[in-house]
Design a binder for these strands. Structure first.
Length: 569
RNA sequence: GUCCCAGUAGCUCAGCUGGAUAGAGCAACAGCCUUCUAAGCUGUGGGUCGGGGGUUCGAAUCCCUCCUGGGACGCCA
């Protein structure tokens, strides 16, 4: 059967009316209550031209729709309600999932196109905080989603390994640093120095100048400065890679800010060549008043470069190397102006691809309603949070499933999954008030809930001797257990997976997928509580096929948002 | 002061390209394990969708305005 029943519905209505197919398509909705059918078309719009009541129009249209993928089409007040033929649709959906498995939901929208995604990008010598978690998990999820949409996704970790902060750190190290301490606990010690610097600088403002001088030395290739920089960077990377391993996130490139050092001259020359640079208070800037933005600082009055200079250079480099059709920057909302400036400068330089640069902003983690600040040492370390959630997962396993084989691995998957899911489940622009208590919740709309549902389903498949590798396909359904109201909602949900993927990509919002997995889990748990899957031999294979389809979709969905799906827990 | 984001149940949020009685989860209370993993399921209570205007047959959803909270506004990133 034609699985695009919405298309069939729209076509049927199109034959009856003068309005365009696209408009009909837009008007078609899903009724609020399942009892009202699966698809609905409101007739208000036609009332004017037809000079009839919406209700009588609905009546007329309903009668004319006789396509056999609908078991019933009826008018309900001003709406035409379509009821999809459940059995044939169910068989089609299940067979497709059984056949496509891990490829189910894959799209080809992005075939042949490259998308570069700039995310995570922690600052060297600073601890990996909860703040970085957001960029990291959102960026990773978007990469997965883009890939599912057929794009070639290039994951770039634009490390914060250059900038005045290093000057500050060097100044601090020269004043109060202890080499042995740094070797023992690199990030913790460097961070202490960094925090001390800012405290001292409030009393002795000349420290700020000192920091700037050290950074200038670094840019000029001073050997001591370069030595310190290399050392700080190396130690930091070691610790970051532990976190990325735990989160199971990898990158295609670690070309950070320092990577563009020797390439910035060219950028500045280009800007000069196009007469875009002007001097303002000793600094060189690109004026952006014509697009209502503050000027973009390219060069400081001491000649050193800035954030924007590096981002411009990186953009040029990436376009040249990857020929991206889209470039995403998964960076906090507070940097919106910066990206508007960078994109505006690229536009002024005449690059047509400037329009395919997209800043993907997100809300911040707040602490007591305020932004966390690394400068003031007010941070929560991701590592500590993960330790807590993993420990709780361990406790849960000990209590609920003490005979589980690979306890440690599962605890890790659940603990980490809880943190990732908690971060991704809400609309990304929302601020998140940090609450360890909430991260440690494993019930309700949480990662562990979805994982648990998956594990439960897997357990049934195992007990039912479901053979994943068989080429089983459904022809017809023998019992009503796979076409009752609960399973029907489940089938429709499973069917909508690729739509959800597409939406998540269009809106660049992984929360769409996270919410979707919860919906599937909820729906399955409801079915599970009502229908005994294994106890009756009649229709067993059909019910197992449905359960298997659920595991496929849950696994694919979780994979997109970067959450593991343990088979038992 | 200017600009950006948000404001929906006690709490955390969904719904927002306009449509049928505004939905979940948590917390509270009440049920459900001799039967497929109770990290589950079922039920009860709980809402002037921040306020006020406007557009429309119809507004939580679009427009205007005000209020509240968060963030950003030149040599940090």
């Amino acid at each position: 059967m034609n699985m695009n029943v919405k298309e069939v519905f729209a076509q049927a209505i199109y034959k009856q009316t003068e309005i365009s197919l696209e408009q009909i398509y837009r008007l078609i909705e899903v009724p609020k209550h399942p009892s009202l059918g699966d698809l609905a078309f409101p007739c208000f719009l036609l009332a004017k031209t037809w000079k009839k009541s919406p209700a009588s129009i609905a009546e007329q249209i309903a009668q004319s729709i006789t396509e056999d993928c609908f078991s019933k089409v009826e008018a309900n007040g001003p709406y035409v309600n379509g009821f999809i033929h459940r059995e044939s649709f169910t068989i089609s959906v299940l067979n497709q999932i059984l056949y496509e498995r891990e490829n189910y939901g894959t799209l080809s929208d992005g075939a042949g196109k490259t998308i570069v995604i700039d995310f995570s990008s922690p600052n060297i010598a600073k601890p990996f905080s909860m703040g970085h978690l957001r960029s990291t998990v959102i960026g990773n999820a978007l990469s997965n989603i883009a890939q599912k949409c057929g794009y070639n996704a290039v994951k770039i970790n634009h490390l914060g390994d250059w900038g005045t902060q290093f000057g500050k750190l060097m100044a601090a190290f020269k004043h109060w640093g202890d080499e042995d301490k740094v070797r023992k606990q690199p990030i913790a010690e460097l961070f202490t120095l960094y925090t001390k610097f800012h405290e001292e600088a409030e009393i002795h403002p000349q420290l700020i100048d000192e920091g700037r001088q050290w950074f200038k030395k670094l840019e000029d290739g001073d050997s001591e400065a370069v030595y310190l920089w290399k050392w700080f960077r190396e130690e930091s990377l070691k610790e970051f890679s532990k976190i990325y391993q735990l989160l199971n996130i990898s990158f295609d490139s670690f070309a950070g800010e320092a990577f563009y050092n020797d390439k910035m001259g060219e950028t500045i020359e280009k800007l000069q060549g196009q007469n875009l640079l002007e001097v303002s208070d000793g600094a060189e800037v690109v004026d952006l008043t014509d697009v209502s933005l503050p000027p973009c600082l390219i060069k400081k009055s001491d000649g050193a470069t800035l954030y924007a200079t590096r981002d411009l250079t990186a953009a040029l480099y990436r376009q040249e190397h990857y020929q991206f059709s889209k470039a995403l920057y998964v960076v906090g909302h507070e940097q919106s102006v910066h990206f508007q400036q960078v994109f505006a400068v690229l536009e002024k330089m005449g690059y047509p691809w400037a329009k395919s640069m997209i800043h993907v902003p997100f809300g911040l983690y707040l602490q007591n309603g305020k932004k966390m600040s690394t400068r003031k040492g007010r941070v929560i370390l991701l590592e500590n949070v993960l330790q807590e959630t993993i420990r709780l997962a361990e406790q849960n396993i000990e209590q609920k499933n003490p005979t589980l084989e690979n306890k440690k691995e599962v605890a890790k998957q659940v603990g980490v999954g809880a943190v990732i899911f908690h971060d991704l489940k809400n609309y990304r622009m929302n601020n998140i008030e940090f609450s360890l208590e909430q991260m440690l919740t494993f019930e309700g709309e949480t990662g562990p809930y979805v994982q648990y549902t998956f594990a439960r389903a897997c357990s049934i498949l195992q007990k039912g001797n479901w053979n994943i590798n068989s080429n089983f396909s459904l022809k017809k359904l023998a019992t009503n257990d796979v076409v009752n109201d609960d399973s029907w909602e489940l089938i429709k949900l499973l069917f909508s997976f690729s739509n959800q993927v597409q939406q998540a990509f269009i809106q660049l919002d992984p929360s769409i997928i996270a919410k979707y997995t919860v919906d599937v889990a909820k729906c399955f748990n409801k079915y599970y509580s009502k229908v005994k899957i294994l106890t009756n031999n009649n229709g067993l294979q059909e019910r197992l096929a449905l359960v298997y389809a659920v595991t496929v979709v849950l696994k694919n969905g979780l994979q997109l948002i970067g959450v593991d799906a343990p088979k038992s827990m």
